[in-house]
Computed example of a mutant assay.
Amino acid sequence: MTSLVTGFLRGTAAGAAGTTALNVTTQADMALRARPASGMPTATVSALAEQADVAIPGARRERQHRLEGLGGLAGTATGVAVGGLAGALRSAGVRLPAVIGAPLLGAAAMVASDLPTARLGLTDPRRWGSADWAADVVPHLAYGVATHATLAATFRADERERAEHPEGAPRSATAGSLLRAAALGAANGARSTFGSAALAWRARPGDRGAVGLLGSRVGRGGATLAALAEASGDKHPAVPPRTAAPGLAPRLALAAGGAGAAARRDGREGGPGALVAAAAAVGAAFGGQRLRAIAADRFGSDLPGAFAEDALAAGLAWWGAGRS
């Protein structure tokens, strides 16, 4: 089974190929219809910079040139990111035929590009004409076709080898292993370090990989101290909300990494469990914060909810780190 990291890197390469196809299609349309380049990427970057209170340096003309460059970079980053996500999903076992996968990838890239502009009030797709829709749909469809074809080509050798030698491949995820992954992810969503601590304490001497490192004396001690520190610091009012990017990103990473490591320890595919754990971490992060707010309204303090969350997260982490 291709790892999520490898799948993501392959996906970024495929996204770059798709972005090239999108740009070529757009430029060909400009040459054929003699239409000007779209100013929407520049306007989007400018609006986002104003919202973030970030000044773009330079005189008027220099600032405009910088905005044009940033707009192009933002479009490229969007195409590469969508491809990276598609690669990670494919490494997790999500494989769609070209007739479905290509249009779906094109639609995803189109939404990723058009949604910010619509939310900023720079455009209204409901008022687009047929020519406007064609100018947007056709290049993104080219993106989807190129990205899907590149992904399929980069994964073909691995998938052929797995089909020819099924005895060496990891076992497929089961309902039980996915439930444990969800529990581990939910624990990480509530307390980002509890999952690692549980894996460390449930490790055995023969375990290899990340679980084996966590099970060492140093790994177990470090994971335990980190969990205790987080359980204590979580109660401090100055701690930023877990649903903000700085709090949510490590929860997602640790949930996916922990569930993937547990699956590989058990000889199973790591991708499906990692995706389930990441989704569970997001749900637990938002749900736990909401429950803490309800407890604060009822008891005048969120400490009762926080201690209850500690106990629930510890129980989920211990069960989720168990062997399937």
Rank of each mutant, 00 (worst) to 15 (best):
G215V: 06
A210P: 13
R95W: 04
A259W: 02
S192H: 11
T174Q: 01
D207N: 09
A74S: 15
L85G: 15
D297V: 00
V218Q: 13
A37C: 12
E161H: 15
D266A: 04
A229K: 03
A255D: 02
D310C: 08
R171V: 10
D158N: 12
L85F: 14
V111G: 13
R292G: 09
R160A: 15
A74E: 05
G121H: 03
A279W: 00
G267R: 03
M1A: 11
A142D: 03
V111Y: 04
S192N: 06
A262P: 07
S216W: 01
G215D: 04
G270P: 14
T193R: 07
S113W: 03
P57D: 09
V282H: 03
G257K: 00
L70F: 10
P41V: 10
A284Y: 00
L4G: 15
K235S: 14
T150A: 15
L291K: 08
R126Y: 08
P41M: 04
A280Y: 00
S38V: 11
A285H: 04
A173M: 02
R35A: 13
P272S: 02
G144N: 06
P36E: 03
Y143F: 14
H236F: 10
S301E: 07
P116C: 07
P170G: 05
G288H: 01
E159H: 13
A157H: 15
R242E: 10
S172P: 14
P240D: 02
S216N: 08
G69P: 09
A28Q: 15
W319T: 01
G219D: 14
G58E: 04
A187Q: 02
A13Q: 13
D114W: 07
Y143A: 06
L228K: 09
S91M: 02
G83R: 06
A13P: 07
A256P: 05
L120S: 02
G212Q: 08
W128I: 00
L303V: 14
G129K: 06
I294Y: 08
G209E: 04
A253L: 12
G260L: 01
V138R: 11
V145S: 01
G84C: 08
A13W: 08
A181F: 00
R160S: 15
A175M: 11
R290Q: 11
L151Q: 01
L312K: 05
V137G: 08
A186C: 06
A284T: 02
G106K: 05
P139F: 07
Q289H: 13
G58K: 00
D136P: 06
A131L: 14
R63I: 09
R162D: 15
